[in-house]
Design a protein around this nucleic acid. Structure first.
Lengths: 285, 285, 285
DNA sequence: ATAGGTTTTGTCAAGCTTTTGTACAT
DNA sequence: ATGTACAAAAGCTTGACAAAACCTAT
C-alpha cells in the first residue's frame, strides 16, 4: 500500500465525519496532526483514518468527545492476546527474581490459555531444560534453581491431585536411589494421567526395595523409574531384572539407555517426556 | 479496554439508575467520588459502574439506601482466606458485588486448596443452589445471577479444556431441547472426567436430532441428557427410546424421574451430581 | 461478606413476622436489641434474623411467647470436634495404603472443618512425628513414607501459593545442606505466613552460598534455616556467623541447639514449630 | 390496631454553566 | 483554511416535595 495521503474531504468521506467536525477535533483535542501542502491543505495518512474511526467508536460507546479523544490518543496497542511465549517469559523472569506471586499469576495465565499438554510440552519442559543449561553455565544460582523448582513442584502436585482415581491402568512412578530431580517424573505422570492412567507416585530418591514393596502392594500395570545421574541405574540392574520379571518395567532419563534397559529386562524411554508417556499408554491398551 | 471516563448520563445509561439519583447517592452517602472536568462535569470510571450496580443489588436485597451504600463501600476487603468455607464466602461475595477479579482470585485459591471434587461438590453445587433459591426469593438481581453464572461457566470451561482427550470411555453430554441451565451438566462432565472418562459436550438446548447425529458419529459408551424444566423430556420419549436401543442412555435433572427414564428405555440419574457421575463411571468399567 | 443491616420492614419480610409483633417482642421480652439510625430507625443484622426464626420455631413447638423468648435468648453454640479426629485417622490410613484419592478427600474434609493452625498443629505435625517414629521402628516402608510425603507436600505447597504476596516482613527459608526433610520448614512457613509475613522459600538441601546470595538479593527481615540431621549445622558455623552479621538468623530442627545457635550468632528455635513461628513473628514487629 | 408525627429517599424544578456539533464570515 | 459564533444537549447546584416506611403512645 503506497503512502496514500488524502485531503480533508476524502477523509470525511471515508469516515463519515463532517469536515468541520474533523477540524474541530483537531483544534480542540489535538486528535489529528495532519501534514500540510505548501498551500496549507491538510494531508492525512491511513493512521489518521483509523484514529477518526476509533474516535467515533469511542463516542458511540458513550464517552464524551473530550474523553473519547483522550482515549483514542492513549489507545496504544491493547495487549489483547498475551501469547504463550510472553507468559512463559513472564514465568521465567518471575522465578528468577524470586517473585513467587508473579510466577503464580503467570502460571494461572498459562493454565487459562493452554491445554495441559501444551503447558507441559511447550512451556515447562523447555523451561526446565533451559534452567538446567543455565545452571550448568553458572548463569543462575542454586538458590534460584531451588526456588523455581519448588514453585513448579507445587503447581504440578496441584495438577496431580486425584490422579490415582478412575478405572484406567495403574502406573507406579519413582526416581532411582540418589536421584533428586523429580520434576521430569512428575511431568511424565501428568502426561500419562491425561491418557486416562492412574498414577501412584513415590517421588525422588526411592530405594529399590521400596519400589519392589510398593509394586507388590499396588500391582501396577507398569513401573517407571527415572534417573538422570549417569550410572544411577548401574548398581540396580540385578534387582531391576527381578522386578521386571513380575511387572513391565520402564527406565527413563539420561541414566538409562537402550542397552542398559535391556540388560535389566526393561524398556528404555527416550528423552521426549510426552512421547514417552504416549508410548507407554499405547503399548498397554 | 481503554480506561474510559464517562459522564453522568452514560453512567446512568449503563446502570439504569436515574441521573438525579446518582447525584443524590453521591451527596447523601458519598457512594461515588467522581473526578471532574475543568468545567465541573463528573467523570466516572469502570469501578464506579460496579459500585452503582452493587448498590442496586444491595437495594434489591432489601437493604435501606443508607445501609446499601455502607455495605457497598465496605465491600472491598482484601483477604487471604485459608479455610474452605472462608474461600467459598469470598467467592460468593465477589460474585455478588460484580468483582470479577476478586472472584477469579477466590477461584484460584479454592483450586489451590481443594480437590476438584470438593470444589464441585462442596462449593459450587451448594453455591449454585443457594443462588437459585435467593433469586427466587428476590434477594438477588437478575444481573447478579447472570454475572455469577458467566464467571463460573468460564472457569468450568477452562477446567474442561482437553477433557475429550485420552484413552478412557467416552460420554456424550447434552442438555435437552429448550434447557438453558448447562452448569449442572458441566459439573457432571468434570466429575466424570475425574474418573478418567473422555467427554464430548454439546451444551445447552441441543435438538434431539443433533444428539442422535453426534452419537452416531462419536459412538460414545454412554449418552447423558440433562433437563431441569418439568416436562422437558416428555415429547422426546419416542426418540430417546430409539437412541437408547443403540447406546446406554442416562437422563438427569428435575425433568427426569425413574418412571420417565424407564419409559424411554433409559436410566435415571438422581439429584446428586457427583454421585451420578460415580454411578455412571462404575457401571461402565 | 458485607454485614448488611436491615430495617424492620425487611426483617419482617425475611421472617414472616409482622412489624408490630417484632416491636412487641423487643419491648416485652427484649428479644432483639437493634442498633438505630441517627433518626431512630431500628437496624437489624443477620443474627437477628436467626433469632426471630428461632423464636417462631419455639412458638410453633408449643412454648408460650415468654418461654419461647427465653429459650431463644439462651441460644447455644455447637461445635464439631469429633470430625477432626476421624478425618485425621482417615488421612493416615489412606496414605498408608497408597490411596491418593481418599487421602485428598480426607485433606479436603480437614480443611473444611479446621482452621489452618489447627490443621498444622493438631493434625499434620503429630502425623509427621508419628510417621517418623513408625518408620524408625520399621513399621512403615520407605515407599509409604515417600508416598505420604509427596501428597502432603503437594497440599502444603498448594496452601502456600501466593505466600510472598502482601506487605508484611519477609522471611527467607531454607533447609541446611544435605537436609532433605522440607516438610517441617514448609509448615513453619505457612504458620509464619498466617502472622502476615511474606515467605521466600528455597526448600531442601540448599547450599550455604545460595542462601547468602538469596539473602543479599531479597534483603529479608529474617533468615530461617532448618536442619534435622545431627551435626548438619556444625560445618556451617563460620559462614552462618557472617550471614548473621547482616540479617537476623534463626536455626531450627534437631540439628540446632541454644549453644550451637549462639556460636553462630543466631537464635535457636525449639521444637514446637507453631510456637517458633509465633516467636519469630513477635520478635520482629 | 390506630393515630399522629418523624425520617428516609426517590424525584423534580429553577437558574446557570459547560460541552460540542454545526454554521458563517473573512 | 481559519477563527468566531451559536444553540442544543448535557450537566451543575440548591432547594424542595411527597410517598413510603418507621417511630411512639394510646
Amino acid at each position: 500500500m503506497p503512502e496514500g495521503l488524502v485531503r480533508i474531504g476524502e477523509l470525511s468521506r471515508r469516515t463519515g465525519v463532517p469536515v468541520e467536525l474533523l477540524r474541530a477535533w483537531e483544534r480542540r483535542y489535538g486528535l489529528l496532526e495532519p501534514a500540510r501542502t505548501p498551500g496549507g491543505f491538510r494531508l492525512y495518512d491511513d493512521d489518521d483514518v483509523v484514529r477518526v474511526l476509533t474516535m467515533r467508536a469511542n463516542l458511540d460507546s458513550g464517552l464524551s468527545a473530550a474523553e473519547a479523544a483522550r482515549a483514542t490518543l492513549a489507545g496504544t496497542a491493547e495487549s489483547s492476546s498475551t501469547t504463550l511465549g510472553e507468559s512463559t517469559e513472564e514465568l521465567a523472569g518471575a522465578l528468577e527474581r524470586f517473585d513467587e506471586a508473579a510466577a503464580q499469576t503467570a502460571f494461572d495465565r498459562l493454565l487459562s490459555v493452554a491445554t495441559l499438554d501444551t503447558l507441559l510440552g511447550d512451556v515447562l519442559i523447555p523451561y526446565l531444560h533451559d534452567l538446567g543449561a543455565r545452571w550448568e553455565r553458572g548463569e543462575i544460582s542454586v538458590a534460584q534453581e531451588h526456588f523455581a523448582s519448588n514453585v513448579v513442584r507445587g503447581r504440578l502436585l496441584g495438577l496431580a491431585r486425584g490422579w490415582d482415581r478412575g478405572a484406567g491402568a495403574r502406573a507406579l512412578l519413582a526416581c532411582a536411589e540418589g536421584e533428586r530431580h523429580d520434576l521430569p517424573l512428575l511431568i511424565f505422570g501428568l502426561a500419562l494421567r491425561s491418557h486416562g492412567w492412574r498414577i501412584s507416585y513415590l517421588g525422588a530418591d526411592t530405594p529399590r526395595s521400596s519400589v519392589v514393596l510398593a509394586a507388590d502392594t499396588l500391582l501396577p500395570a507398569v513401573v517407571v523409574l527415572s534417573g538422570t545421574i549417569p550410572g544411577a541405574f548401574d548398581p540396580l540392574v540385578p534387582d531391576l531384572r527381578e522386578l521386571a520379571d513380575r511387572t513391565p518395567l520402564y527406565l527413563g532419563g539420561a541414566a538409562s539407555s537402550v542397552e542398559l534397559a535391556s540388560a535389566a529386562g526393561a524398556a528404555h524411554l527416550d528423552g521426549d517426556i510426552l512421547a514417552a508417556a504416549r508410548t507407554v499408554a499405547e503399548r498397554h491398551d
